[in-house]
């Protein structure tokens, strides 16, 4: 069987890729995609631990709740991106600095 560490390494790599995307992408929707990658990496960890720890099915319940919250986040964040597009006519995050002093 696949050892627990390999799941953790994959999840760590996925998390780092997501962090890289959040830090470097200009397009707001692309930043959202990177955030979804981070959610998925956390979920892999939760499910892996719930498999490798005896009788810890709560990890899968947590993962399910994370998926629900990811859906909420995607809906609200995309609504905010739409509003931003209506004002700015683009969704480049580095140009959205209207409140900067």
């Amino acid at each position: 069987m696949i050892p627990l560490e390999h799941y953790l390494y994959i999840s760590a790599a996925l998390f780092s890729l997501g962090v890289f995307g959040v830090l470097t992408r200009r397009n707001a929707v692309n930043v959202l995609m990177s955030i979804e990658l981070i959610f998925n990496s956390a979920n892999i960890n939760l499910v892996a631990f719930s498999r490798f720890v005896e009788g810890a099915l709560g990890g899968q319940v947590f993962a399910l709740l994370v998926i629900v919250i990811a859906a909420c986040e995607a809906a609200v964040a995309l609504a905010i991106v739409m509003s931003l597009y209506r004002v700015m006519k683009n969704v480049n995050l580095d140009e959205a600095a209207e409140l900067k002093g």
Partner: peptide, 28 residues
């Protein structure tokens, strides 16, 4: 061994969130 989660992942992420993101890409 998380069969229910695998189904939920495909239904919600691929079917729901990704469609939302594609809408976001197209509308912005």
């Amino acid at each position: 061994g998380a069969d229910f989660l695998a189904g939920a992942q495909v239904l919600i992420y691929v079917g729901g969130i990704l469609t939302l993101l594609l809408f976001g890409v197209m509308l912005t």
